[in-house]
Measured scan of single mutants.
Amino acid sequence: VTLFVALYDYEARTEDDLSFHKGEKFQILNSSEGDWWEARSLTTGETGYIPSNYAAPV
């Protein structure tokens, strides 16, 4: 399992994006889409796309 942590807060701009807060942890589901990764929040259980430059490996 690849775990990442949010470096900044992010507010979803589309219904496919995932809103999150700094410090929140994610499981990365798909990182082959370039700058946007499909991720599941370990806090909320929700799935959506996150900007890859807002996350770092745990």
Rank of each mutant, 00 (worst) to 15 (best):
T44I: 01
L3I: 15
G23Y: 05
R13G: 08
D17N: 10
E46F: 11
E11A: 09
G48E: 00
V58H: 07
L29G: 03
G23A: 02
G34L: 11
Q27T: 10
V1P: 12
G48N: 00
K25Y: 15
W36E: 03
E11D: 10
P51S: 05
S19L: 02
D16T: 15
P57K: 07
R40E: 05
E33S: 14
V5H: 05
N30Y: 07
S32L: 12
E15D: 13
V1N: 14
A39K: 00
E24Q: 08
E11G: 05
S41N: 13
T47N: 05
Y8K: 07
W36C: 07
V5P: 01
W36V: 07
G45P: 01
L7P: 02
I28P: 02
A6R: 00
N30P: 04
G45D: 05
E38F: 15
K22V: 10
G48T: 01
Y10C: 04
A56T: 10
T47S: 09
E11T: 12
Y10T: 01
V5C: 10
D17W: 12
V5A: 05
F26Y: 01
N53V: 08
V1M: 13
H21R: 14
V5L: 07
D17L: 09
E24V: 03
P57G: 05
D16E: 13
S52P: 08
T44H: 03
Y8D: 07
A56L: 08
N30E: 08
E24C: 05
A55E: 02
T2Q: 13
S19F: 03
S41W: 01
A6Q: 00
T14G: 15
S32N: 11
D35P: 11
V5E: 11
V1L: 14
R13W: 07
W37F: 08
A12W: 02
G48Y: 04
A39E: 00
V5R: 04
N30L: 06
E11Y: 09
E33P: 12
S19R: 04
A56I: 13
E46M: 14
Y54L: 11
L3Y: 13
D35W: 08
F4M: 11
Y54R: 05
L42C: 14
H21C: 14
S31E: 09
D17V: 14
D17M: 13
P51E: 02
L7N: 04
D35I: 10
W37E: 00
F4R: 04
E11L: 10
I50E: 00
D16S: 15
W36M: 11
L3M: 10
E24T: 07
A6S: 04
Q27L: 14
T44D: 02
S41C: 06
S31L: 13
T44L: 01
A6L: 03
G34I: 10
H21S: 13
G48S: 01
E15R: 10
F26T: 00
L7Y: 03
L29F: 08
S19K: 04
L7Q: 05
P57N: 05
L42N: 04
D9T: 06
D35H: 09
L29C: 12
E46D: 09
G48R: 02
A39V: 15
I28L: 07
D16Q: 14
V5W: 06
G34H: 10
I50N: 01
Y54E: 02
R40N: 03
E15W: 09
G45S: 05
T14A: 11
T44W: 02
K25A: 07
A12V: 02
A39P: 00
V58A: 09
T2N: 12
K22H: 06
G45W: 07
F20I: 05
D9V: 04
S32T: 13
E11I: 13
G48P: 00
E46V: 10
E33V: 11
D17F: 14
V1Q: 13
G45R: 03
E38K: 13
I50R: 00
E24L: 03
S31P: 12
E38S: 09
R40D: 01
A39L: 01
T14Q: 10
F26M: 07
S41T: 04
K25W: 14
T44Q: 02
A6P: 02
T14C: 15
A39W: 01
K25E: 09
T44G: 02
N53S: 13
P51K: 06
A56D: 06
I28F: 03
Q27P: 00
A56V: 14
E46R: 15
H21E: 09
Y10N: 02
T43K: 13
L7S: 03
T2S: 10
D16L: 14
F4Q: 03
Y8C: 14
N53T: 10
Y8R: 07
V1K: 13
T43E: 14
D9I: 02
L7M: 08
N30H: 08
D16F: 15
F26N: 00
Y54W: 08
P51C: 10
S41Y: 03
A6N: 00
K25L: 15
Y49W: 15
F4C: 09
T43D: 10
G45T: 03
E46Y: 09
D35Q: 10
K22E: 07
V58Q: 08
G45V: 01
D9N: 07
W36Q: 07
G48M: 03
P51N: 09
P57S: 06
V58G: 05
A6E: 02
L7H: 03
E46S: 09
G23H: 04
T43M: 10
E46P: 01
Y8H: 08
K25N: 07
F4V: 12
Y10D: 00
N53D: 11
R40F: 09
L7E: 04
N30K: 09
E38I: 15
Y8P: 00
S41F: 04
F20H: 00
N53C: 14
G45A: 04
W37H: 04
G34A: 13
T44E: 01
N30Q: 09
N30C: 11
F26I: 06
S32D: 11
S31M: 15
L18N: 01
A12M: 04
E15N: 13
T43L: 13
F26A: 00
D9M: 03
E38N: 07
P57I: 08
R13Q: 14
A55F: 15
A39H: 00
F26C: 07
P57A: 09
F20R: 00
Y10I: 02
V5Y: 12
T2D: 13
A56F: 08
A55N: 02
V1R: 11
